[in-house]
Amino acid sequence: MLGGIYSLLSASFFIDLDAVDVAFTEASVGAGISTLLMLASLKLVNRYERKTRYKPLLALGVITITGALLIYGTLDMPHFGDPNAPAQQHVVPRYLNESMAEIGVPNVVTSVLASYRGYDTLGETLVIFTAGLGVMSLLLVSSRTKKESKNLVPADMRQQIILRVVAKMMIPLILIFALYVQFHGDYGPGGGFQAGVIFAAGVILYTMLFGLGVSQRAFHPEVIILLTAFGVLMYAGVGVACMLLGGNFLDYNVLRHDPIHGQHLGILLVELGVGITVAAVMITIFYKFTWRTVKHKYHQ
């Protein structure tokens, strides 16, 4: 919970530094989802803690060395806000000054993220996808452990009239807002990551209030797992399409006759892919956690 406060605070700092997009991400990811997931995992860990089977010293050693290397690496980094820093001299001026002409998207962050740094963002999307896979496989393996827990019941909505009515009004608005953020990433703060998280948050709210069973009837888990892969494939597919059309991987200029239109289309598709993956992974993870906490009711 203090983590939640922390991320609200840090979002304020980012706003102070004028990094709207980062603040946006922090707002949606940090303040809401991470708190919830942390609580959920805390709960699981609490109940299922066992003796460690691996050698902790080895891991400690690896972590120490990695940490030391990272710190050593930062020694060479320029001071914060140093105008002579390579980051300020090399590509940034080009990004800032020419992105409007080259890509035609008013929000610089989006053009950097999805176009100039297309590879990086593809990598990030893959990381999220892998994280989702990791969580799925982890929870799948340990789901063989049988433990009794009686204190977990699905939501009983007859007891929660007020919450039910208000949630019914809010959920459609949350979902449409997520899509709005998705498609306005070019103009304002936002984009695939944030939209995915907000969308997932709407679904998570629905699941929390109406119960896992109802929620899975509306959003089939199999479909959502497929969607996680679909988002990544869509991103990579755009890249491959660029290659087929004679450009480099993720070189959107060739998608249309006019490079600016090509860039625009490419960015839109890529962002959509990111959004789909993020939302689907989040929902899957939440389903898995919730399933872990209520499944005894269904097995018995």
Partner: peptide, 23 residues
């Protein structure tokens, strides 16, 4: 544009409080 962030905050804050309570 900051207002968009404010809207997100309203929604997310609500969801996380409900989530914490549920938890």
């Amino acid at each position: 544009e900051f207002l968009d962030i404010a809207i997100v905050y309203v929604l997310i804050n609500f969801i996380s409080v409900i989530g914490i309570l549920r938890f």
